[in-house]
Amino acid sequence: MKSPPSLRPGELAFALLLLGFSLAAFYEAYQISGFTGLTTGGAMPMTAAAVMIVSGLFIVKDTLARRGGPAPSLRETAAFLVPPRLLIFTALLIAYAAAIPWAGFVAASSGFLLISIMLLWRRGPWWAAGVTLIAMAAIYLIFRLGFQVVLPMGTLWR
């Protein structure tokens, strides 16, 4: 098992966030059946949440122990965690997911592929369009006709 040499930007905040999430998960698990019995539906979720809390505490402790040097600025944390390319791509991803029920799988995927390949590949719109066309044709042939997956049509075309 290898240990990272130094703390990553935002690692302590993330560890605390996970600990908070574990505590919330324990509360939610407690809501299922409380401490009413050893074989209730809530017993295993509560055990799992307890393991998350204990390991979460260890993660926070390890993170604190690895702390050294000045704390990274918000800008450094953002550059490490969400570089501009990732931010744009994630925004595209969300837009893609939102567009599927409305525009249908084929149109939404074509749009997503075209824009993201154009942004990431930087070979010009014609290359991106060509690749998108080939990829979509292959996906349609393999999945719609081969695997017989019923792809979402989209409300726009009804």
Partner: peptide, 28 residues
């Protein structure tokens, strides 16, 4: 991974995700 604590946390998280839905024994 880097530490046992992280591995245990992820395993327990997986168990929690696996618990979502109707309890097969009591339908809770």
């Amino acid at each position: 991974g880097e530490s046992f604590a992280k591995g245990a946390f992820m395993g327990a998280l997986g168990v929690m995700i696996g618990m979502v839905g109707l309890d097969p024994m009591t339908a809770e």
